[in-house]
Amino acid sequence: MKNINKEATRETLKVDCNAESGTITLEGISYPQDSADFFEPISDWLSCYLNEIDSAIVLKVKVSYLNSSSTKFLFELIDKMEAYFIKGGEASVSWYYVEDDEDIKEAGLEFKEDLELPFEMLSLKSV
């Protein structure tokens, strides 16, 4: 399957979906006009990976701003991984936040509290 590599723009995330390493990395800020258009290829990639490769998957989230619809799409990705984990698959999330960024920290914690899959909160020093 084909990996996804997208550079960040002013309103969209840097995306790296790598089937060899079993990782999805999302980085930056996200408020596209059409969130569905942006996130659906990532969601399709994840489904394809879980079906065909059927191996460990790690989602690394290093965002500094998500609008509400991007948050919803990100949740759908994590929810897909959660279903895979509950069926016995290996899946985990690493959520990075700058130490004084309460909004992103809080968003991560709110996701984490409803999930069973390993969800790691990683604080970064502010620059």
């Binding site: 059409d34 569905a36 509400s68 619809s69």
Partner: peptide, 25 residues
């Protein structure tokens, strides 16, 4: 917070961006 989490989990209408969560946010 309860309503926000419900809205996150709610199925989107087909190919829609409108999660309905913007106002709650």
């Amino acid at each position: 917070k309860v309503l926000y989490k419900e809205a996150l989990r709610k199925e989107r209408a087909n190919h829609s961006n409108d999660g309905g969560i913007g106002l709650i946010d």
